[in-house]
Simulated assay, not measured.
Amino acid sequence: MTGLRYVYAVCRPFGTPLQSQLTGIGGAPPGLLHHHGLVAVVSQVPEADFGEEALKAHLEDLDWLAATARAHQGVIDALTTVTTPLPLRLGTVFRDCSGVRSMIEAREDDFRRTLERLEGRVEWGVKVYLDPEPPEPAAAVAARPGSGRDYLRRRRESTHAQEDRWQRAEAFAGSLHERLCRYAEDSRLHPPQNSTLSTTPGQNVLNAAYLVPRKHSEEFVETVDRTKGEAPGIRVELTGPWAAYSFTGEGQS
């Protein structure tokens, strides 16, 4: 194998082969590097793209970054179907296989502890959104009185209504989180997504990840599904199952 070594994940040895058509970053098929009873999932990448300076420049290129992240995630998704992977940070690169082995030796104890904790578990993501208020009909707007006092009264009423909707959404999200934690061994409450930067409509009230044993995943999903449509104007989105990114201790780019 020539070129640099890109490492997607570390896992325990597994017997089920990866998909024969699976490709990673740059179209190269991922391989398995066994060392000290652990497995690093690696592929060859060109130094012209993944050398230190080149990688730093590429990380400012959103199109390149998105394509690389998709390829990285594709390998992790494939691994999740056959084992419990510990995903590494996007852009984890070493000069050669010796560098990968040295990394495994330096972090061996942490890898083993984390893999033991994650074995048989997956990550589910749940987001709760407060939908935008529907626009008032044009006829109602045209019929409004035009005085300044009426305008201020309408503004106050609109503000109070929005505050009430937000409080109801927060209460709903808190209740849902409590219910979901009954099936999860751990959870992470991530900062809400910025509505001005997101392409998803509405305000993000809950942005959470849950570490769920596979044997409880069906109940977890059913609990989320039962809440959909439970509260008018509030939308629930479920994603997963994923490798347990939020619970590995690995920073994600």
Score class of each variant (00 low, 15 high):
Q73W: 04
V82N: 00
A67Y: 07
G91A: 10
Q44S: 15
T68S: 11
T81A: 15
G37Q: 14
L86S: 06
E105A: 12
F111V: 04
A57D: 12
L90M: 14
T81I: 06
E108I: 04
A57T: 10
A67P: 03
V39Y: 03
T92S: 10
D61N: 15
E108C: 00
H36A: 15
H35E: 14
A78D: 05
V45M: 02
V75C: 06
V39W: 05
A69V: 08
L65P: 04
R107T: 07
E60C: 07
E60F: 12
E47M: 06
Q73N: 12
L79R: 01
R107S: 06
W64V: 06
G99F: 13
L55Y: 12
R107Y: 08
G37E: 10
K56L: 02
T80N: 13
A71E: 13
S102H: 08
F50W: 13
T84P: 03
S43P: 15
V100L: 11
H72C: 00
D61C: 14
G37S: 14
R70E: 12
A57L: 13
L62R: 11
G37W: 14
F94D: 07
L38P: 08
R89Q: 12
A69R: 13
E105V: 05
P46D: 07
S102N: 14
V42D: 06
E60T: 10
A106D: 10
L65I: 03
D61F: 14
R112C: 08
V42C: 15
I76M: 00
A66W: 09
V39D: 04
